[in-house]
């Protein structure tokens, strides 16, 4: 199962290989052995206990900008119907 959620590094030991990531205030132990050079505060993607990729914030912003543009051009109403 691939969890697509970016999580933030909040603890890192001296070796830089073991630490913890945080998501919504919940922390989980994570190995950074496959992602050398990460630092506290970096956003990463974790798979089965191992960080496998760093989140590129510039690219993330671009995707969101693209989505915003598609939404604006589609003429979808700003608020779609929720509960009455």
């Amino acid at each position: 199962m691939c969890l697509g959620i970016p999580v933030k590094i909040v603890e890192l030991d001296a070796s830089g290989e073991l630490g913890k990531v945080d998501y919504l205030g919940t922390k989980v132990q994570t190995s950074f052995a496959l992602l050398p050079g990460v630092g506290l505060g970096d956003w990463v993607i974790v798979h089965a206990g191992f960080a496998i990729s760093r989140l590129d914030e510039e690219e993330a912003r671009e995707t969101l900008a693209l989505l915003r543009e598609i939404v604006e051009n589609s003429g979808e109403p700003e608020e779609t119907a929720g509960l009455p």
Binding site: M1, L3, I5, V7, Y23, L24, G25, T26, V28, G82, L83
Partner: peptide, 20 residues
């Protein structure tokens, strides 16, 4: 049911995201 209306606390949303 409206998924976005279902009240969930932060830890439960976190567990849902982190563990599936």
């Amino acid at each position: 049911l409206e998924e976005e209306a279902i009240p969930l606390s932060r830890p439960v949303r976190a567990a849902a995201g982190l563990l599936g």
